[in-house]
């Protein structure tokens, strides 16, 4: 299996304060990885750094062999899709139009969608079980459905790596499971590499393949059996 994400000894500072030190991580294709840790332990900082928003002060990050801090934003947008923890939800926009945003890194100035783009968008909608929602207005959907639309947008972006910052934080019990299960399906069927942060270790232990914990100014991978113990010790 190919290596998708490779983080080598990175240091990350935020507002002149060191948040993460000397962290490394390698993720292969088709893996669902959960990022756990306390509030303020650096989960979002790590995800922002991998997504290209925050430059590490030391070390290297590459996605599919491309050093993301030496490539331009357009290249990066074809390697990583990123979903914020509280994304803005615009008005007057249909589900399909919102998923079409995922195609932006591939479109010209006039944003006209080609047949190929439309096929990819429809496939992304289908993957997320949204085919019958495609002409509905985005803002009339429930939070759980909205989250699926955002995930479909990430699929339409067609990147090997998908990063999600707390994708389940506003959802009910059932929708949380459904969201993580959907991510799991994407890893298995579409060979995506998905990294998401979460505050629900039980759900993650049940569904994720690998586990990374942020604590004591660094991050490291732990085995499934040690997740809870490590988390409790870090608290």
């Amino acid at each position: 299996m190919h290596t998708i994400l490779e983080i080598k000894n990175i240091d990350v500072s935020y507002k002149q304060q060191k948040v993460l030190e000397n962290g490394s991580l390698t993720l292969k294709e088709s893996t669902l990885t959960a990022l756990l840790g306390r509030n303020g332990s650096g989960k979002s900082t790590l995800l922002n750094t991998i997504s290209g928003f925050l430059k590490p002060t030391k070390g290297e990050i590459s996605v599919s062999g491309v050093n993301i801090y030496k490539s331009n934003p357009a290249t990066r947008a074809r390697l990583i899709s990123y979903l914020e923890s509280t994304p803005l939800s615009p008005q007057n926009i249909t589900v399909k139009e919102l998923v079409a945003f995922g195609r932006y890194p591939y479109l010209n100035l006039f944003t006209s969608l080609s047949e190929k783009d439309l096929t990819i968008i429809n496939f992304a909608l289908f993957q997320c079980g949204l085919s019958q929602f495609s002409d509905r207005l985005f803002n009339e959907l429930s939070d759980g459905e909205k989250q699926k639309v955002f995930i479909a947008r990430a699929i339409a972006q067609n990147t090997p790596l998908i990063i999600l910052d707390e994708p389940t934080s506003h959802l009910d019990f059932i929708a949380r499971r459904e969201t993580i299960k959907l991510l799991k399906t994407l890893c298995l069927k579409e060979n995506k590499t998905i990294l998401f942060s979460s505050h629900e270790p039980e759900l993650c232990i049940e569904l994720a393949d690998r586990f990374v914990i942020t604590a004591n100014h660094t991050f490291s991978e732990v085995n499934k059996g040690e997740v809870l113990k490590t988390l409790i010790n870090s608290y």
């Binding site: 074809r78 899709s81 994304p87 890194p105």
Partner: peptide, 23 residues
């Protein structure tokens, strides 16, 4: 008019716009 693409992505927030490669 030529900025339509950028304006559209700004609707989803600056961070999202950056993640799809908008300067």
């Amino acid at each position: 008019f030529l900025l339509s693409k950028q304006l559209n992505t700004l609707l989803m927030g600056e961070k999202y716009a950056r993640s799809v490669g908008v300067n």
